[in-house]
């Protein structure tokens, strides 16, 4: 059953590439570069030092905001999930901020912080943190009461219950939150950079002005690769680092 589904997966991608190739050949590369041309452009792009500089700049700036968001988001999320008062205080702000998009806060943040490192980091943080908070809150709230009761009947203190029951139970969800957060962090970072036309976003904007769409596709494919490899890595980490997720009854 496993092999056929893999084959169909590949078939789907192959069909897409074929359609893309045919459409690209008919429309010309100003409108739609063919995958072959895109691959060639990708190879050329990968040899440009400018590209790597822009990519590196985007990634480290994003990582600062992302890691901050993860650290604060997870702690805030756990607090919200376990302490109803904290939840009541933060919830209205969380639901308010989560509907605001990266694009809409960009003009405000430009006024507040200029266009430097603080700007992109702050945008990534503000956009990412609420997604982390919301998913961790849900997870923390639904930690099975049975587990906590067992710990309590074995006379575990508050700290012990937190350390040995709640935290391990949350582990897989934190990794899921990290994954969801990463997607949003990347979205926010690209939005911010495209708005101020700096770094990788600037490259994307410039590629859009090109006569051929092949370099644009090359940049988009790179984003795809980054996002997919990061999420795959985190999914793998979640599956391997949290064996108790499958059988919750087994203790650490």
């Amino acid at each position: 059953m496993r092999l056929p589904s893999r084959v169909t997966n590949l078939l789907g991608i192959a069909l897409l590439l074929l359609l893309w190739q045919l459409a690209g050949q008919n429309l010309g590369d100003a409108l739609l570069a063919t995958p072959v041309e895109a691959a060639r452009a990708l190879a050329a792009t990968l040899q440009e030092p400018d590209f790597w500089a822009a990519l590196w700049r985007m990634m480290w700036q994003m990582m600062i905001g992302y890691l901050l968001a993860l650290g604060i988001g997870v702690s805030l999320g756990i607090a919200m999930g376990r302490v109803p008062v904290v939840n009541a205080i933060v919830k209205p702000w969380a639901s308010m901020f989560i509907v605001v998009s990266a694009a809409a806060v960009v003009p405000l943040f430009i006024i507040l912080m200029g266009r430097g490192l603080l700007f992109s980091t702050a945008i990534v943080f503000v956009v990412t943190v609420w997604y982390v908070v919301v998913s961790v809150t849900e997870a923390a709230r639904t930690v099975s009461p049975k587990l906590i009761d067992v710990a309590r009947s074995f006379a575990a203190s508050d700290v012990q219950r937190f350390r040995y029951v709640i935290l391990p139970a949350l582990h897989p969800y934190v990794l899921i939150a990290a994954r969801v957060g990463f997607v949003h962090a990347l979205r926010a970072m690209v939005t911010a950079e495209m708005f101020i036309s700096a770094g990788y976003g600037g490259l994307l904007n410039n590629a859009g002005l090109d006569l051929s769409t092949a370099p644009l596709f090359a940049l988009i494919v790179m984003l795809m690769v980054i996002s997919l490899s990061a999420t795959t890595l985190m999914r793998w980490a979640a599956d391997h680092a949290a064996p108790w997720y499958a059988s919750r009854t087994r203790d650490r």
């Binding site: 169909t8 997966n9 078939l11 789907g12 991608i13 069909l15 897409l16 694009a103 997607v183 990347l186 979205r187 970072m189 690209v190 939005t191 495209m194 994307l204 904007n205 590629a207 859009g208 002005l209 644009l216 940049l219 988009i220 984003l223 795809m224 996002s227 997919l228 999420t231």
Partner: peptide
Amino acid sequence: LVDPIVNLVYAVPSVAWVP
């Protein structure tokens, strides 16, 4: 058939399609 395509496209931040 479709799932890998959806995942691939979903992975790209939508703003990147703007150009």
